[in-house]
Design a protein around this nucleic acid. Structure first.
Ligand SMILES: [Mn+2]
Ligand SMILES: [Mn+2]
Ligand SMILES: [Zn+2]
Ligand SMILES: [Zn+2]
Lengths: 145, 145
DNA sequence: CTACAATTAGGAATCATTCTTATTTAAGAT
DNA sequence: ATCTTAAATAAGAATGATTCCTAATTGTAG
């Protein structure tokens, strides 16, 4: 196994940070490592607890602020769902969400159709469209019992 | 002008409350009157301030709890957008939202196409779908300067 | 009118997020 | 390797939204 394989993600994030005049720090690396593989769209507190296992002194603020920074530079995304804490998504490719109204689980799904909707003309004319997504609400398999 | 016209909304909400074994109260009527015509998807605090002009002693808790009750019985809807306070929508007909990422304005729009999307088969198979909507993010006319 | 259960006001508590400040650190320059 | 300096961090306070608690009030059935 080559050395590069072990430091790939580290170099990737470092490059992106540099592009935005931000420094690479061990805290940022640890936070990135924690979220990059996750599929559950974790909230800050969840990431905080995990990172604490490696960095016993890291503060909640640092984790939360770092996640906001990552969103700002496009490394991750923030998932919209009101009434709860912010949740984060390492998957920045276009995709859509099924949200369980019982347990709050957020599940990714893909759809060619949904990826290519025709934004209404009057919306495109009046506003600047950045992105769009389809959100399905319902009850997940686990909660259906 | 007939008497029924003046008490129509009052009777409507009373009927719906009764169906859910809830009592009609002056506070609930005032809160309903405040949100029913609004197009701005107001947050609790906005509704609270308005209702206070009529009911100087009403508590924030009552307004907030009542709005939750209204959502529960389907009188209004809660609008999803994380990182901010809950916002409410008196429009329960199927429609979609444009959200301005700069000022947080939430704007309704209609689309026959968006109202009739084909939910992916594997989603329908695995989960119980209750509803779905398209959310467009972008920059509104005001914020474009 | 009376009794009972639901609803409310007010304040405390909780939870997420942001701010403040002193200290530490990353990274470019020597 | 050391110095320099702006950026980043830890810790705790502050803020904001929401929920909880409890005693008092109110709506409605009988
Ligand atoms: Mn996702
Ligand atoms: Mn709406
Ligand atoms: Zn579920
Ligand atoms: Zn705007």
């Amino acid at each position: 196994m080559k050395k590069e394989n072990l430091s790939n993600t580290h170099n990737d994030i470092k490059k992106l940070l540099k592009k935005h005049n931000l420094k690479m720090t061990p805290q940022r690396a640890a936070i990135y490592n924690e979220i990059v593989g996750s599929k559950e769209h974790p909230a800050t507190v969840k990431i905080f607890k995990k990172v604490r296992e490696v960095f016993p002194n890291i503060s909640f603020d640092t984790v939360n602020r770092t996640l906001s920074t990552f969103v700002d530079i496009g490394l991750i995304k923030s998932v919209e769902y009101s009434g709860e804490s912010r949740r984060f998504d390492p998957n920045t490719k276009k995709h859509h969400h099924f949200i369980c109204v019982k347990c709050g689980r957020i599940i990714d799904f893909e759809s060619r159709e949904f990826d290519n909707l025709n934004i209404p003309e009057d919306i495109k004319k009046r506003y600047e469209v950045l992105e769009y997504k389809v959100t399905i609400e319902g009850i997940c398999d686990r909660c259906k019992k």
